[in-house]
Design a protein around this nucleic acid. Structure first.
Lengths: 191, 191, 191, 191
DNA sequence: AATGAATGAGCTTTCATTCAT
DNA sequence: AATGAATGAAAGCTCATTCAT
C-alpha cells in the first residue's frame, strides 16, 4: 500500500488528497461527526471520485486514513528512540514530541486513530483495525526497548505501559486543553 | 439536580428513562452516532417529550446523561477505597471492579463520558464539562489517598496517574475486546 | 383504512395528496422510474412529511397507492355489472369503460397495479400484494356473475378469463397506443 | 444484426455477454430497476466497453436485448406449431412450453419484453419497439394458423386472442407465483 | 405539562455517462 | 478497438428541531 507522503507539500493526486483531508477531519470531529461533503470540499474532489477510489465509501476511506495516520505515528516513535541512550530517554523524547504536536496541531489533540475508529458504523471491523494499529505501535516501541538493552518481557511491559499512559494522557490533555499532562508522563513513570 | 437512581428497578418517569437510554446509547455509539429517534424508541418516550424536559435538545440531554454516568463512577470509586488498607489495595479493587463491568456490560467498554463528550457539536462547552467530570474523579480518588495516609502532593500524583492509566487501559481493552489490560494495571503501577 | 375520495376536487390533506400523486406517477413511469422528488413536487409536500406518514418510505407509499388504485377498479367493476341483464353485457360495459379511460387518461393505459407492484424493491411483499389485489378483482367479478345467474364454478371461470383477457389487452393496447383491442374483447370472448 | 446463439455454451464475446446479462436482468428487475453496474458485473465486461459496443448506452442495450429475447420467443412459437395437427393443439403445446419455462427460469415469469420496454426512458421509441415485437409474435402465430387450415381473418383473430390471453396469464401467474393459470389457457379458449 | 404532526437541510450512496489513453 | 478513471446530478432516507394543540 502506498501512502501519501507525510511531509510533502507538492499538489497530491485526488486519492491522496482525499486521505489527507479525511484523516484531518475524522480526527477532529469523529467518524459520524464528519460529513463526506466536508471531506470532498476540503480535498477539492468531485463527489463521484470518492467511490471510484474507495468503493465501500466512507468506511473504506476511514480505514485507509487511519492507516496513513498510523504510519506517521510509527515515524515519530522511530525518530524518538533513534538517538536515545536508554528507554526512559527515548520515552521522554516521545512524550515531548507528542506534547509539541498537541500544542501546534488540532489533529494531535487526541489519539489520532481512536477518534477515527471507535466511532465507526461496523464496530467489528473497525475495532479489529484499531487493535492491529495499536498493537503495531506497542510492538515498534518494544523493539526499540530491546535495542536499548531490555529483556523481551521487560521491553513488552515497558512499551505497553508507556502507550497506555500516553493514551490516558491524551484523554486528560484534551479535556484540559493542555499538553501539560503529556509532558508529565516521564516524571510519573520514570521519575 | 436529581438523578435517576442507579440501581432502582421501579418504573422510572419519562425524564429518567430518557437519561438512562441516552447514556447507554451515547456511550456505545458516540454522540453523533446516536440518533434521537433511537433514544426515543428505547425509552418509550413520546416524540415531543424530549424538548419539554430538555429545551436545548440533544446536547442538553448529553450533558445530563454524562453527569448521571459520572455519578455512578464516583460511587464505584468510593466503594473501592472504603475498606482498603492502603492506596494500592483500593486502586487494585477499583481496577478489578472496572474490569468486571467491562466484561459484563457493553456500556463500560470505554471511558463512559469520553464517548459522550468528545464527539459533541459545541466542543467548547462539552470539553469543559468533560474536564469538570474527570477532575472530580481524580479529586475524589485523591481524597481517598489522603485518608489512607498519603501527603497531599503524593495523593494528587497517585490519583492522576491511576486515572490516566485507567483511561489508557480502557482504550486498549476496547481495541482488544478484552479486560485483561485493565486487570494488569496494578501490576504495572504497584507491582 | 381511509382512502382519499376518488372523485373529490376539494384540497386534500398531505397524506392523501401524496397517495394520489404517487399513484399517478408510479402508474405512468413505474416504481423505479418515479423519483420521490417528483412525487413531493407534484403533491406540494415537504420531504420530511413523507416519512412521517409512510415510515418505510417509498415502498410503503407504493403499497398504499396500489390499494387506492385498486379501490377505484372495484368501483368500476360494480358500476359495470350493476344494471347488466347478463354477464356478457356487464363484461362488455366493463371493457368499454376501461377503453374509455384508456383514451382519456394516461394513468389507465396499462394495468394500474402491475405498473406499481411488479417493479418494486422487495419482490416478495410486492408480489403478494399484487396477488391479493388481482384476486379481489376476480372475486368481485365472480360475485356479479353469480348474481346474474351463473353457477359458482362457471362464474369463477368466466371472471378469471375476463380479467386475464383484460390484462393481456392492456399490454397490447399500450404497445399499439390504441384502446381498440380492449373494445374487441367482448367479440373475442362472447361473440 | 447478429444475435448471440440462444443455446450456445462456448465463451461468448463481450458484446454478446452484455446482451445476455442485460436481457436476464432487465426481464427480472425492469429497465430502471437494473443498474449498468450490475450488468457490467454479471457479464464480466470492462466498464468502458459498454459505450464502445452500444454508443447510446443503456437504452441502446435494452432495445438489442429485447430483440434477442424476441428471437427466442419466435423459436418457441415455431417449435410449438411445427408438428401440430390443428391450431388448438399447437396453441396448447405453446402454453405448456411457456408454463414449463415459467417453472424453470426466473426470466420467464412475465412477458419478457414488456418488462424491458414498458419501463424505458423514452416512451415513444420503446413503445414502438414493443409494438413491433408483439406484432411479430402475432403475425408468426397467425402464419402457423393459416398453415393449419384457418382462413386469414380467423387466423388473425385466433392468433391475437391467444397472445392476449398469454399476456394476461403471465401477469396473473406472476402475481400467484404459479404457472397453473398458463396451463389452463387451452381449457379456457378451446375447451 | 405534555405531545404527535410537520419540516427541510443534510446524510451516504448509486446513477448513467464522458473522457484520456 | 478497447478501457479504467473521472464526474456531478440525483437517488432514497435520516436528522434534530419547531409548532399547534
Amino acid at each position: 500500500m502506498v501512502y501519501p507522503a507525510h511531509m510533502g507539500t507538492e499538489q497530491a493526486n485526488t486519492r491522496d488528497r482525499l486521505i489527507t483531508s479525511a484523516a484531518r477531519l475524522f480526527r477532529q470531529k469523529g467518524y459520524h461527526g464528519t460529513g463526506l461533503a466536508e471531506i470532498l470540499a476540503e480535498s477539492h474532489a468531485p463527489k463521484g471520485s470518492l467511490y471510484h477510489h474507495f468503493p465501500a465509501g466512507k468506511s473504506d476511506l476511514a480505514l485507509v486514513a487511519a492507516d496513513w495516520v498510523s504510519q506517521g505515528m510509527l515515524e515519530i516513535i522511530d525518530a524518538s528512540f533513534a538517538d536515545a541512550a536508554d528507554f526512559a530517554e527515548g520515552a521522554t523524547t516521545f512524550c515531548h514530541k507528542l506534547a509539541k504536536l498537541f500544542d501546534l496541531n488540532d489533529s494531535w489533540q487526541s489519539c489520532p486513530i481512536s477518534t477515527i475508529l471507535f466511532d465507526g458504523p461496523d464496530n467489528g471491523a473497525f475495532r479489529t483495525h484499531a487493535n492491529t494499529i495499536l498493537t503495531n505501535w506497542i510492538k515498534r516501541t518494544s523493539l526499540h526497548a530491546r535495542e536499548l538493552g531490555l529483556e523481551k518481557a521487560d521491553a513488552d511491559a515497558a512499551a505497553e505501559l508507556l502507550l497506555i499512559t500516553i493514551q490516558g494522557a491524551w484523554t486528560l490533555a484534551r479535556a484540559r486543553a493542555s499538553s501539560e499532562v503529556i509532558r508529565r508522563i516521564p516524571r510519573h513513570l520514570y521519575g
